[in-house]
Amino acid sequence: MTEPVTVEVGTMGRVAYARIAPNEDLVQGVEKLCLAHGFRNAFVRGALGSLVDACLGTRDGKFIQIKGPAVEIVSLAGEVRSDVDGSITASLSGVVADTNGDVYGGPFVAGSNTVCMTFEVTIEEWLPSEKSIAA
């Protein structure tokens, strides 16, 4: 699904819940959760947990690092999409709170957000209709 699709029609499918363990990466953890259950496209339905440190990306390619432990994930939205190259990619963004409760937001950088104690996530499978895939 490399071509942009303005409107993609589909239905929701299976629902998976995971507890992701310490020192695993947040973004790739969600991708591996999809692999574990055979989801090819999915939306995050709910997520909370903590990170050792948080790493958020900026528009100009820089990185905002929020030092923990622990940095709490207080809001998270995102999706997982499959690509024609045989990979799946989770794009997650959210708000985190540091050990003073101060908040920061942005896109989570894959490979740089390790779970501190636990990360709970519920994802719902997205099944695009054949028509949308063809478009």
């Binding site: 507890r19 992701i20 310490p22 050792v52 440190d53 905002i64 690092q65 923990g68 490979g111 501190c116």
Partner: peptide, 27 residues
């Protein structure tokens, strides 16, 4: 607690008090 950098920060691996569970994603 927040810092801006041009280099991607190296993630830290913390040592927890108990035995490492080989199952990392319980789902």
């Amino acid at each position: 607690t927040a810092a801006l950098s041009t280099l991607r920060p190296r993630p830290r691996t913390l040592i927890h008090p108990g035995r490492f569970n080989p199952v990392r994603i319980q789902s």
